[in-house]
């Protein structure tokens, strides 16, 4: 086998390794990104599965037990479609409406860890975790965004609780 052939085989192997790594890592770590309504509609199918949920934080429901580092709060459904968000007047307004609309679907969330700095009323919470049998969402990761205050890119971990 000539050096040239061996070089080409080496290149092909590397390319194959990259493709394999992307495919396998995607398969193992992909999570659905859903709205509260979508999660509740597919509750049976998705219970126990790792998913990502976005919702608006209801400020009155935030409870924190620093002894156990146990955080409880409730989020309200916000639409996931960008065009819909635009039509309704931007993210800040959508979050505000979601929190103040008693007819919206709600989801109770439990999270263990330090209380995130940006957790407050009308913040957008993006949570990774699973829906328990009890209908409560157990979040392993919690990202928060407050569109009313900051237009700009704070890296997301800035707003994460862990």
């Amino acid at each position: 086998m000539s050096g040239r052939t061996r070089f080409i085989i080496g290149g092909v192997l590397i390319a194959a390794a990259v493709v394999y790594l992307i495919a396998s890592a995607t398969k193992a770590n992909a999570q659905y990104f859903l709205t509260v309504n979508e999660l509740l509609a597919r509750q049976d199918e998705l219970a126990g599965k790792n998913v990502r949920i976005s919702g608006a934080v209801l400020g009155d429901t935030i409870q924190y037990d620093p002894q156990k580092l146990e955080l409880h709060f409730t989020v309200a459904h916000v639409p996931g479609d960008n065009k819909e968000v635009e039509r309704e007047g931007g993210l800040a307004k959508v979050l505000h409406d979601a929190v103040n609309d008693p007819n919206r679907a709600h989801l109770d969330v439990v999270y263990y860890g330090p209380r995130p700095d940006m957790l407050k009323d009308e913040a957008q919470a993006i949570m990774t975790g699973h829906l328990g049998e009890d209908g409560v969402f157990y979040a392993d990761e919690l990202l928060l965004k407050c569109p009313s205050h900051y237009e700009d890119a704070v890296p997301e971990q800035a707003e994460s609780g862990n």
Binding site: A17, L21, A25, A28, A30, Q31, F33, T128
Partner: peptide, 15 residues
């Protein structure tokens, strides 16, 4: 919409 988190990057870029 399907997302991938840090474990995806770690697993795929580590090797």
């Amino acid at each position: 919409k399907v997302t991938v988190g840090p474990p995806f990057y770690e697993k795929a870029t580590g090797p």
